[in-house]
Design a binder for these strands. Structure first.
Length: 487
RNA sequence: GGCCCUAUCGUCUAGUGGUCAGGACGCCGGGUUCUCAGCUCGGUAACCGGGGUUCGAAUCCCCGUAGGGCUACCA
């Protein structure tokens, strides 16, 4: 089994592109086949210089390693189409010699006029009228001698039909009469996708073409080319598109966002892979959370659904949260630290104490994270002195008249502690509550607001244990001075 | 306009002629608890419509309808 992912470097790959890559990769890994990366840079106008590096970075981030392709090489290279022009020319000439292709000298203006006229007259297909296909050998020679610019077009059989058994959607067939003679070689000497794709898939020994649904209508053209060459076509599997919630069309907001944006927001690659795998494929049972190794084991073409699927950010967030919660403390620290750095909570090169504070505080907010990017906000009060006080929290828990007594006694109890840890802090708080004949919660809430500025967050005792005695006392003093009436 | 694809809870999906149509996200409620989150228990919610075929259709066929794709010297 040999499959390929063949993006064109004309933009930054999004979820749809990467899902296609993922399915190819999963299929190859499942079968023990080869996953090939091929860069289809045949559009000289639209090719972006940084698109290929970005693409490779995205694949690497998601863990989709390629066995052959740019950087790693391979026996069927080069793997960049712009480096294979001689091959396309040679094979185009071969097709011309066989009478399966011909040179077309029609200027663009004529093409456009023809298209408009056919559309107006409702003549199908709307495309090229095969003007140059009808010439005699003498006329061809004449044109060639004149040295006019030309494209090479494929001579679609005038009758019959072309079909294939799609691995995802069953038998699909087209009447050849619906197909116009498409361009194989452009006038700039570059091949079109319709040609390079077929040539390379054959030369690279691709056995299964797993690609997006947008290619369905051009598949008969590809099949006809295989036929003209006398080549065995691969198995085709056409994936449905990913759509947006509500509206449908892909927008820049979700599915069409450059995939690395998700990294910036703190999505874990294995979570995104899990999510993408589920977006149009199912292992059959009720499995939801699957690590890459499990996906590889369970993946099959049969499990791919034929209908489009909507990109559901809520579900991605849930899956990401599941993966974040599974992170071991050391991994959590390494993965979340960059977000704390970017938010300015720790230095770009964190000090030893910053690292330690991060290592101790991050596990406390771990359960609450859906994206690592939320870590700075959730853990901020551990790093900033004084913390930011939420006015509503202050109003509710520090303003009432009994707040002073509670906080003063709690502070005094804390001061007396020799050992400062979760257990001693808890004991002290509960003792204060007992002395005041209050519920523990009545002491806990004001103390939390005084120490963190918020009503929400990790358990108070573990929070204070991490914050330390000194900073806890300083914050309570500070809160007493600033917010608590009756001083 | 033409050709092609698709159609199960709001969303992702299981289902392959006989099921109380299952699971997950979300949402709602209970429990745990110092809050939030998490965890946990429970609930809400679907076979696009109409014809067939069949003893019996979510499952097979046809026709609608709806959504999507393609219709470039872009991929």
């Amino acid at each position: 089994m040999r499959v390929r992912f063949a993006p064109s470097p004309t933009g930054y790959p999004h979820a749809g592109n990467l899902r296609t890559a993922l399915y190819n990769w999963l299929f190859a890994r499942h079968c023990g086949g080869r996953f090939i990366l091929r860069i289809e840079d045949t559009d000289r106008e639209r090719t972006l210089p940084d698109a290929e590096p970005y693409l490779k970075e995205a694949l690497r981030w998601l863990g989709l390693d390629w066995d052959e392709g740019p950087e790693v090489g391979g026996p069927a290279g080069p793997y960049r189409q712009s480096e294979r022009l001689d091959i396309y020319h040679r094979l185009a000439d071969e097709l011309i010699a066989r009478g399966a292709a011909y040179r077309c000298y029609c200027p663009r203006e004529r093409l456009e006029a023809v298209r408009a006229a056919r559309r107006a007259a409702n003549l199908h297909p709307y495309g090229y009228d095969r003007h140059c296909r009808a010439w005699s050998e003498a006329e061809r020679q004449e044109r060639a001698a004149a040295g006019a610019p030309f494209v090479v077009r494929f001579a679609i059989p005038l009758a019959g039909e072309t079909g294939w058994e799609d691995a995802i959607r069953g038998y699909i067939t087209y009447s050849n009469r619906e197909l116009d003679d498409h361009v194989l070689l452009k006038s700039d000497g570059y091949p079109t996708y319709q040609f390079a794709n077929v040539v390379d898939d054959h030369l690279m020994g691709i056995t299964h073409v797993i690609r997006a649904e947008e290619w369905v209508p051009s598949t008969p053209r590809h099949l006809l080319e295989y036929q003209a060459f006398g080549w065995e076509p691969p198995v085709f599997a056409h994936l449905s598109l990913i759509t947006e919630p509500g509206g449908k069309k892909l927008s820049k907001r979700l599915g069409a966002r450059p995939i690395l944006d998700y990294r910036e927001e703190g999505y874990l690659p294995e979570a995104l892979v899990n999510f993408l795998a589920l977006l149009g494929w199912s292992p059959g049972g009720n499995r939801e959370i699957m690590a890459p190794a499990e996906l590889i084991e369970l993946f099959s073409l049969e499990g791919i659904v034929p209908h489009p699927s909507t990109f559901d950010l809520e579900k991605l967030d849930w899956i990401n949260g599941v993966y974040i919660r599974k992170l071991r403390p050391a991994d959590l620290l390494e993965r979340a630290l960059p977000f704390l750095q970017r938010a300015g909570l720790v230095h770009t090169l964190p000090t030893e104490s910053e690292r330690e504070l991060a290592a101790r505080s991050l596990p406390l907010v771990q359960d609450r994270l859906r994206r690592l990017g939320e870590a700075p906000e959730l853990a901020e009060f551990f790093f900033r002195d004084p913390p930011e006080y939420d006015p509503r929290a202050v109003q509710k828990w520090l303003d009432p008249i009994e707040a002073r007594a509670i906080l003063v006694r709690t502070r005094d109890a804390f001061r007396r502690l020799d050992q400062w840890n979760e257990a001693t802090v808890e004991e002290a708080v509960r003792r204060v509550a007992a002395e005041l004949e209050m519920r523990a919660a009545d002491v806990i809430h004001p103390t939390r607001v005084a120490a963190t500025g918020r009503t929400e967050g990790p358990g108070l005792f573990e929070t204070l244990a991490v914050l330390g005695k000194e900073r806890t006392l300083a914050r309570i003093e500070d809160a007493l001075r600033r917010f608590v009436p009756g001083g």
